[in-house]
Amino acid sequence: MIQVIVNGLSVGAFYALVALGYSMVYGIIKLLNFAHGDIYMLGAYVGFVVLGALTSWLSLPTALGLVLVTLVTMALTGGAGVLMERVAYRPIRHAPRLSLLITAVGLSFALEYGVRQIFGPKPSHFPVQIDAGSVNLFGATITTARIIVILVAGVLMVVLSLFVAKTRQGRAMRAIALDAKAARLMGIDVDRTISLVFFIGSALAGAAGVLAGAVYGTIDFLMGFIIGIKAFTAAVIGGIGNLYGAMLGGVALGLLESFGVAWLGGQWRDVFSFLCLILFLTFRPTGILGGRVVERM
């Protein structure tokens, strides 16, 4: 039982990290950013390249090198996110919302198959792998790598919450999420703030990508697709647009899947988690935190 919960938590941490960016972007411009999962994939590949370049220049201890690589990757994928918004989303921000969805799907295809053209269809081996055995926790086994994932995800989420709650930019984001027009009248630079949201969301996804590479040791060009869908699901469970909701939703989805495997077996896992989701939304149509909280960032 504890083992099942621990398994769920470690998967859920990943979902939560990716779902955060999804939810942030949704909160501010109401866009389902289908390319978000592919930013996660891009992060893994950027980390792969940076790590390759870095290890050939200087020899750092693995842990320090990994932290450095994660930071560089976050900056690069954040930039990619901003660029994406500029090129594909901003020109049609006032078009029907579904048109944005199509450019998002188009971007997703372009990213996936662009990476495939560069790195080939075969999965690649990530040069560094966090592999420090496993520990026993209340009778459940968990690998150290997964504990690191949970910790890193937790830290990033706390930092982000503080940023949104305490800083000027955070306030600007919340203001735009509530009412973009009024925010503009109050002197908030809406375009800049939206760029910032894309930067932060994509940087988080990039960090998750590097983590995935380092924990599992393999990356491939389609790895973002499924996690994008999972993150979307997690964000909706939590109440889309709500930051804490995304975190809760990620963990909840991880746990649902873990229990699904334990009770019904792997082949019925997705049926189980989606059925729970549908039942839950039938009784609570706006997710865990969707309705109650007024501020949605």
Partner: peptide
Amino acid sequence: DWRYLFFGLLLIVVMIFRPAG
């Protein structure tokens, strides 16, 4: 090999120039 890459880019371009379809 290139077709899905083209396909994706085509979708973006079409939507930017014809946002309503």
